[in-house]
Structure formats: structure tokens, C-alpha cells
Amino acid sequence: MAEQTIQQETFWRFSVLQRTVHLTVMFAFIGIGLTGFSMAFSSMAPARAFAWFLGGVDSVRYLHRLFAVVLYLCVVTEVLWLIYYKFILRGNLLGPHSICFTKQDLSYFRDHIGYILALRNAPPPFERFAWWEKLDYWTLFIGMQTMGLTGLLLWFPEFFSRFVPGYFINLAQVLHFDEAVLAVLYKFFIHTTVRHFRPEVYPGDWTIFTGKTTKEKIRRTHPGEWARLNASVQANSAGER
């Protein structure tokens, strides 16, 4: 049988770099959300009390921008990693191990919705990253670009109003706020629920923090990856013989 070909129970799923980036993004995201909303909702007393706790509005603004820079540096790190993956490691960006969306994900998404609506008996055989994992990654990645752009417009309005009409600053403010609400509610509630509170993973999935996953977990949640892993192991052992 296929699973007997691999002896180890524990596998490395995330590298040190990936774990560090996730942890940094996590704390910076919480920080940027708290500081941002304490400014946006400053008409309410708890927000003002939090701003006071951080040392007044000047330090809130400073921290907000500091976290923004940290978050964007993480995005830069990811871009550099993608370049490294593509050109040095010669990885396939559209291959089964990639975080990039492929055509396959559309049918997986449809099948998965079919599964949760009980139209199908089993979830589709996800590869290394399931569609919601890819979605979480890319929403943050693209969200950082738009939040960064609107944020820069608000940070340096004098400079940017030389190139764009003044009311773009108003637009930036509106979009920055709307997207912040969307991103924070999505990450704090939906991302957390899907990753930690679903019956399948409850009480918590520590893979992104420890980097380790188990054979059972891969088989259950990423059947496609498991099959591919076994195929390559079999091919290797066949080659050795």
C-alpha cells in the first residue's frame, strides 16, 4: 500500500522563513488594526482610552506607520522569495506545490462548496495548498498593495496631490477605511475560524507556528499532495533499486 512506503510520522510543512513571516505579519497586523481603529473610531471613548494608553495620538500614528512598514517589508520578502523560487530553485509557479492560483483551483472550489453543501461525499483532493489557504495568502498580498497605496496617499498628501486631484485623498481615506474593516474582520474572524475552530482542526492548528505536520493530517487535508509525495518516493526507491 502507498502509505507504507513512508516511514516518518512528522513532516516539515513550513520553512523557518515562512514561519517568521507569518508570525511577523500576525503581530504587525494586530498592531496596525488596533492603532488604525483607535484613530478611526476616536469619537468613541474606548478608542480614545486605548490611544491614551499607547501614549497619545502621536505615538499611535507613529506605531501605525511603523507596523505598515514592517508589513510591507514582509511583502517584499515574499516577492524576493518568489523570485528565488522561480529562478534559483527553478520551481514551477503553476505547479501543484505552488501557492499561486491555477485553473484546477476553480474546480476544487466548486467541488468543495459541493462538499460543504453535502452534494458530494468527500472534499476534493487538495494539493499542497487548498483554495482557502491560497485565498488568505493572496488577499493579504494584494490587500497590502492597495492599503499601502491609499495609506501612502494619506501619509504624504502634500506630495501626492501634485500628481493626483485633491479629492483622491478623500477617496483614499474612504477606501483605506473600508478595506481595513474588510481585512480585519476577515482575518480576525473568518481566517481564525477556518484555521482553528473548524471541527476538523479544533482546538487549533499549530502547523504555521511549529512548521510540523503529521502524516494523518496531510492525508486528510491534502490528499493530492500525499499521493504526489508517495509517487515521488516510489519513483525514487524504484530508481535506487
Binding site: P157, S161, G166, Y167
Partner: peptide, 12 residues
């Protein structure tokens, strides 16, 4: 805003 350009005054 010392460096404000004419467009800056368009901010509502």
C-alpha cells in the same frame, strides 16, 4: 501644509 500645491486645496 507648507508644500501644498493648488490641487491640495481640492481635498474636500
Amino acid at each position: 501644509h507648507r508644500n501644498a500645491s493648488t490641487r491640495f486645496a481640492d481635498i474636500v
